[in-house]
């Protein structure tokens, strides 16, 4: 398989890291919301690749950047890799966010490393997205500085109130709408399942449109195994939903397609 060299692999804070790969073809093709499927090491005890959102792509430099949290054996292994070593990447895979056109305010709503997936919207949308970002505490907050440096309006919510507003990221939605009466918004959600469900419900209540990027465990990453499915609304199905593969039909789904459990 193709080997992709690590140009940089550094700690951002706590368990969060940034890794840059030399990957010209992926960089040229990547769009916001897509992911790469990473075989971190050729260890036989790891049979599955690990999916990571493409945080940024630089077609001129031929490089892509991922932001990852060390949570288990694979990401721990990745954190130990030095610049110059290689991983095997498949990608870019999956569906992408639809860039908001002129006249529409793009709003990224992110939990944890979810903000990694929405960053390329900074360049693909007609105007700079607003970032609503939630984290458990100050130490778990990442990328707010990167979005600010790119000229985005960044609003923070933390569970403990250590930074920004105390509360959930979804609570930042209504104040934003209230400040901008009559404006058109398009929301991009990326984060853990409970956050996405809460965001989905809130946006429906408020009659706002958007797209959600789901985070499910994956095996093949290319639609072959049915290991990564999510429920999507399906009027033809008796139950009202059917399963879609999040690696090829997602990870980005239009909000109206996502089936929200009652």
């Amino acid at each position: 398989m193709a080997r992709f060299q690590i140009l940089e692999n550094v700690r951002l804070r706590g368990d969060y890291f940034r890794v840059v790969f030399s990957a010209p073809e992926i960089a040229a093709a990547a769009r916001a919301g897509q992911f790469v499927h990473v075989r971190i090491d050729e260890r036989r005890d790891h049979v599955l690749r690990r999916p990571f959102s493409i945080h940024d792509a630089d077609p001129a430099a031929g490089s892509i950047t991922l932001i990852y949290k060390r949570v288990g054996s694979g990401t721990a292994l990745l954190a130990e890799k030095a610049a110059g070593s290689c991983c095997d990447l498949l990608g870019p895979l999956g569906t992408a966010f639809t860039p908001a056109p002129e006249g529409v305010v793009p709003v990224a709503v992110a939990g944890g490393y979810g903000a990694a997936a929405t960053y390329m919207l900074v360049r693909s949308c007609a105007r700079k997205p607003v970032l609503l970002i939630g984290a458990r505490n100050r130490d778990e907050l990442i990328l707010d500085d990167v979005y600010r440096a790119a000229g985005c309006d960044v609003r923070v919510a933390t569970d403990d109130g250590g930074c920004g507003v105390k509360g959930r990221v979804t609570e930042l939605v209504e104040p934003l709408l209230a400040e901008n009466p009559g404006k058109k918004f398009f929301f991009y959600g990326c984060g853990p399942r409970p956050m996405l469900a809460a965001l989905g419900r809130k946006l429906r209540e408020l009659h706002r449109d958007g797209e959600l990027s789901v985070d499910e465990i994956m095996c093949c990453g290319v639609g072959a195994c049915f290991g990564c499915v999510v429920k999507i609304n399906d009027p033809d199905a008796e139950k009202g939903w059917s399963y879609a593969r999040s690696c090829v039909e997602g990870p980005v789904f239009p909000l109206e397609k996502i089936y929200l459990e009652k």
């Binding site: 005890d45 049979v47 465990i217 095996c219 195994c225 499915v229 999510v230 399963y243």
Partner: peptide, 19 residues
């Protein structure tokens, strides 16, 4: 439809599936 999620997990040297 198949089974509810999660349908797979990795174990040492392999994986378990109930697709």
């Amino acid at each position: 439809d198949g089974n509810p999620m999660p349908r797979v997990c990795e174990v040492t040297g392999g994986m378990i599936n109930a697709i």
